[in-house]
């Protein structure tokens, strides 16, 4: 057995909140390894679901809606929002069921806690992974939209589209952190059904993906408090323009929520797991 020499232990980089980045990257790397094994069963379904929405709602319902959506095709109207929701779903899966299983069923985090990693590193690594997964989901969707655009159904009409991955990452980070927050609150895995039906699904329906939030009374006010609304607006702005000052507001809102959660969630995770 090779015994480490004194002073050899390199500690890596510590972020604020005593989060060690190299430990977090180890957690990320594990998830990536698993993902490489299962991507056929993992990526493909998640690729199909939003595409089905796009085709079913966009082309089907679109026949009745015509070009009444702010002068656009219905497909073109809903596509950016669906991309944002794909990112939301990708991150949410990781931060909920997958994380709960590693906390309490497979005891994987107990194994990690026997290494130099601390719980806040693990939470941060899962956040990085959830964001990656949001990006993978969103990027798959982006490729489909590119296909539509090239096939003369203009959906991506602005060069700002190149910055969409950044917006998707931001959405991924927020929903990773919100999912983790919920995960620290519950005592049984069944309670995620509430997170989905009372939080994510309403957001999916009322964040301006399928119709402008201003169409229902009070819609705009409520939407302002939900992160998905800001994500949808930002992605739509980047894909189709015109970019206005309010898009800076949407970005700022999301960055602020992200920073707040980043401060609070890893330490909550630690409190929850290390007692």
């Amino acid at each position: 057995m090779r015994l480490p020499r004194i002073g050899e232990s390199e500690s890596g980089m510590n972020l604020p909140g005593d989060i060690n980045l190299s430990m977090a990257l180890c957690v990320w790397r594990r998830n990536f390894t698993v993902y490489k094994h299962t991507w056929v069963t993992n990526i493909l379904p998640n690729f199909f679901e939003p595409v089905l929405f796009l085709v079913g709602m966009g082309l089907g319902l679109g026949v009745y809606v015509g070009r009444n959506m702010q002068g656009q095709d219905y497909v073109a109207f809903i596509a950016p929002g669906l991309m944002a929701s794909a990112a939301m779903n990708g991150a949410s899966f990781e931060a909920s069921w997958n994380m709960y299983i590693k906390m309490y069923f497979s005891k994987l985090y107990d194994a990690y806690l026997a290494t130099p990693a601390q719980m806040q590193d693990i939470a941060f690594g899962e956040l990085l992974w959830g964001t990656t997964r949001a990006l993978i989901y969103g990027a798959g969707f982006l490729v489909v939209l590119l296909g539509f655009t090239l096939a003369e159904r203009p959906i991506l009409t602005s060069w700002w589209t190149l910055l969409v991955p950044l917006a998707l990452a931001l959405i991924g980070a927020i929903f990773s952190l919100m999912g983790q927050w919920y995960t620290t609150l519950i005592n049984t895995i069944d309670l995620y059904s509430y997170y989905w039906t009372l939080f994510l699904t309403p957001m999916f329906l009322f964040s301006g993906i399928f119709f402008p939030v201003s169409d229902i009374p009070g819609g705009t006010t409520v939407a302002w408090f939900t992160p998905l609304f800001h994500g949808v607006e930002l992605v739509r702005g980047l894909c189709q323009g015109p970019l206005e000052l309010r898009h800076l507001g949407h970005t700022g809102y999301m960055l602020a929520v992200c920073a707040l959660l980043l401060w609070a969630v890893p330490r909550r995770m630690r409190k929850r797991m290390v007692k």
């Binding site: 232990s9 390199e10 190299s22 430990m23 180890c26 194994a111 990690y112 290494t115 130099p116 990693a117």
Partner: peptide, 8 residues
């Protein structure tokens, strides 16, 4: 391998 990485 994953565990070894945790030790740098």
């Amino acid at each position: 391998e994953i565990f070894c990485r945790f030790y740098g």
